[in-house]
C-alpha cells in the first residue's frame, strides 16, 4: 500500500531540496513549502496507510466498528502542518522585508551581516 506514496514522498524531497539549493530566496521558499508537505506525508506514511476509513467512532458504538486509519500520525501531522505553515508564513514575510530593505532576493548577495571585505582584527598590542 505504501510504496507508491513513499516514492512520491522521495520525489517531493528531491524537488524541495533542489529548490532550496537555489540562490533565489523565493525559490527557497517554494522549496520550504514543498519540504513541509514532504515531511508531513512522511510522518503520515510512517503510521502505515489504510484506505479510506477515517478514525471516527460510529454514533452507536464505543469503539470503531472496523479497522480504521491510524489516528495518531494524523494528529501529529495536524500539529506539524500548522507549525510548518506558520514558519512558511513568517519566512515569506521575512523574505519580502529583506527584499524591501536589502534590495536583493539573492541570498548570496545578502552580505550585510557578513560583509564581503571583512578586515582582519587589529594587530599589535
Amino acid at each position: 500500500m505504501e510504496s507508491g506514496v513513499v516514492i512520491l514522498i522521495g520525489l517531493f524531497f528531491t524537488v524541495a531540496v533542489y529548490l532550496m539549493l537555489s540562490k533565489q530566496l523565493v525559490r527557497i521558499l517554494l522549496g520550504i513549502a514543498i519540504l513541509g508537505n514532504a515531511v508531513n506525508m512522511l510522518i503520515f506514511t510512517n503510521g502505515r496507510l489504510t484506505r479510506e476509513v477515517p478514525p471516527l467512532i460510529p454514533e452507536n458504538l464505543y469503539t470503531p466498528a472496523t479497522a480504521t486509519a491510524n489516528p495518531l500520525p494524523q494528529a501529529l501531522v495536524l500539529t506539524a502542518i500548522v507549525i510548518s505553515f506558520s514558519f512558511f508564513a513568517f519566512l515569506l514575510v521575512l523574505a519580502f522585508r529583506a527584499y524591501q530593505e536589502l534590495g536583493t532576493d539573492e541570498v548570496n548577495s545578502m552580505r550585510i551581516a557578513e560583509p564581503e571585505h571583512d578586515q582582519n582584527p587589529p594587530q599589535g598590542y
Partner: peptide, 19 residues
C-alpha cells in the same frame, strides 16, 4: 537591515535543521 540579513540565514538554516 543587518538583522533581516542575519534572520534570513538563521531562519532558513534552522528550519532545515528542525525538519
Amino acid at each position: 537591515r543587518i538583522q533581516l540579513d542575519g534572520a534570513v540565514k538563521y531562519g532558513v538554516l534552522n528550519l532545515v535543521g528542525t525538519n
